[in-house]
Design a binder for these strands. Structure first.
Lengths: 352, 352
DNA sequence: AGTCATATTGTTATCGATATCAGTTTCCAA
DNA sequence: TTGGAAACTGATATCGATAACAATATGACT
């Protein structure tokens, strides 16, 4: 390890305590114009002569002026951002959705502020409250389960709301998503068509992850409807369950129901864990046991065997949700259609 | 009852005289106190009698009042948040760092605003600019490479800055990180001690990912110093290179230098891709070829064979960086020590 | 009683920008 | 020449909260 002393001698720290930071008035003085003209020069639509604008931009540069958005939005009553809350920072599905949102917002002049709920409606409530204090112009949520208080705040806020990734029974405002239970049921049917009969399901322990619960419900329903019930369910670990929990859960599954011939997992990550664990135990996948996931993560397409899964249009969810939000913010009137269903596709591969 | 209200001429708005959102003044009126008292009641430290506070909270609830932070921070000159910029939203290393930051900020009364640079200093510059317009009380950056303009803005901002994940030659302010080149060199030496002699390296094509470049430099230097040079380098794909690029890169490596006996990858994800590709081609890992990664992602501990890698203390980086920031924000004077080195550990497993 | 500390609440003056409307200049058509 | 639209710029009044100081009440202590 390098024990070399840092050469902190170069320059001074970032603390420039001497001068108070310049305001727009300083810039205006420097450029010999009024603050209003400075304000206009700094907006792209401001009608200011080229000459004046140049002088102002020089002043801005010279003084190192940085606009104060707090003051600006207080005055203009527009904050220029929308909020999006997702369960997890480190999940490629949700990050795809975030990308979709960002892309859709690209030329709208709106920024995205992301918040992480950690799969908890309580944290979501707190986040909503603190987001609302910053006055977003719209808000995108993941899922349709919220605390009553959260729901109330959103309804009172008067801003457009889009719930995503689920189809809530009683939507707050707009919805962009798919039926988790129906998608999972489709996967069950596809696997039944391949000849599997003894179905197992692996997911997290609690109801925290509502999408997980919905998937489990869809699993159970479909297995029942096919006359193959009851489905075998192992709940293990606090959502989001990851590779390790998938591995541990499949062990429980095999202990309890050794003859299970296919295991569906709440996500690809847990499916991968289950797959690795089975292989570690010398089981053939498929053959001794089949495994399927959910979400079509990159890993599923590259491991051996490749994992059968469901692709849900994560990016599209984000893009559509943000588009819907923009429409509501700008157009004002909702175009009637409050619910947008997104597509999905069962992807059959070697693991099941 | 309302005759004592200030002649504010409320409800003069063109359209909705009734539905305009309540302000603190409305709450004050409703509770029969001044706005100042309402303001105090809504802060935890506000000295207000229990009786009054209760009445005010009732009014808040009744009116559905939500504090406007823009107005608050304009007045108080405190925004109550810090910014952190990380390269990628979907990378468990950086999300661990983000968790560390969040945890350290827990009881500070400061919120975290996360931004994503997508490994681009240009995007970073834009993000810094827009963050600065919201007046964060401090800022945490990933890496030590920034555009000159970005650097200038940060230095002029007057707020504390912490650069992380690297040891910049010329730090802006504070630094919390490790030497990527030295860590990679350590990995090379550990593998040389295991008997490997023909070293290959897989990373992204461009200099966008400075940490990747530093790792490559450390690799080349160490191989040279061991008298095993020159190291074999394959650059493939735009950073962050992922599973698929790792797989493709190892193919190039094997075509160009078929006798390579160990391949080091810029990250565990690419290492996993390389591993899968080698297995697909019927090669034994290790045996025919050894593979190592960087970052100790969960996947490396669960695949077969488990991947040799380096664990860098991602969470600790975040925690220490935020701690340092708090110190600078509150304590004011920097405690002299501007550089914090974080620990790391080579983790030898079966893949190499 | 008188003085003073403490607790509670109110008044006033901003914080730094922008909306709005008014004033000025430019330039072209009649 | 002149009216008048178009382009540009400025003065003023907020936006909604909080800091700082002032005022009042209460009770304790000398």
């Amino acid at each position: 390890m390098a024990d070399k002393a840092p050469d902190k001698a170069r320059g001074k720290g970032a603390h420039d305590a001497s001068a108070t930071k310049p305001t727009m008035a300083d810039v205006a003085d420097y450029a010999g114009v009024s603050t209003m003209t400075v304000s206009r020069a700094l907006k792209k639509d401001g009608r200011v002569s080229e000459d004046t604008r140049k002088r102002i931009l020089e002043a801005v540069d010279k003084l190192g002026y940085v606009l104060d958005q707090a003051a600006g939005s207080l005055s203009s009553r527009r904050t220029g951002f929308v909020a999006a809350l997702v369960p997890s920072i480190n999940n490629s599905n949700f990050s795809d959705t975030a990308r979709g949102i960002t892309d859709a917002l690209e030329n709208s002049g709106l920024q995205l502020l992301l918040g992480y709920t950690d799969y908890s409606t309580e944290k979501e409530e707190k986040l909503i409250q603190s987001m609302l204090q910053r006055r977003p112009e719209g808000i995108i949520l993941t899922g349709g389960s919220h605390t009553p208080q959260a729901r109330r705040m959103l309804e009172k806020s008067g801003i457009p709301v889009v719930e995503t990734w689920e189809i809530p029974e009683d939507p707050i405002d707009h919805v962009v998503g798919f039926s988790n239970s129906e998608v999972m049921a489709d996967l069950v049917r596809a696997l039944a068509a391949r000849g599997y009969r003894k179905f197992g399901y692996i997911g997290g322990t609690t109801a925290r992850d509502t999408r997980g619960s919905l998937r489990r419900a869809g699993f159970l329903k479909a297995v029942e409807e096919l006359g193959l019930g009851p489905g075998r369910v192992i709940s293990f670990g606090v959502p989001p369950i990851s590779i390790e929990q998938g591995a541990q859960a499949v062990v429980s599954m095999l202990e309890r129901w050794p003859d299970t011939d296919v295991v569906l997992c709440v996500s690809d990550l847990s499916a991968f864990g289950a797959l690795m664990e089975c292989q570690r135990r010398g089981m053939k996948v498929p053959g001794d046991i089949a495994i399927a996931g959910f979400g079509d993560y990159e890993i599923s397409a590259f491991c051996h065997p490749r994992i059968t899964t469901v692709n849900v249009d994560c990016y599209g969810i984000g893009k559509l949700a943000a588009g819907r939000l923009l429409q509501a913010i700008n157009g004002g009137g909702s175009a009637g259609d409050e619910l947008t269903l997104t597509s999905y596709k069962v992807i059959l591969r070697e693991s099941a």
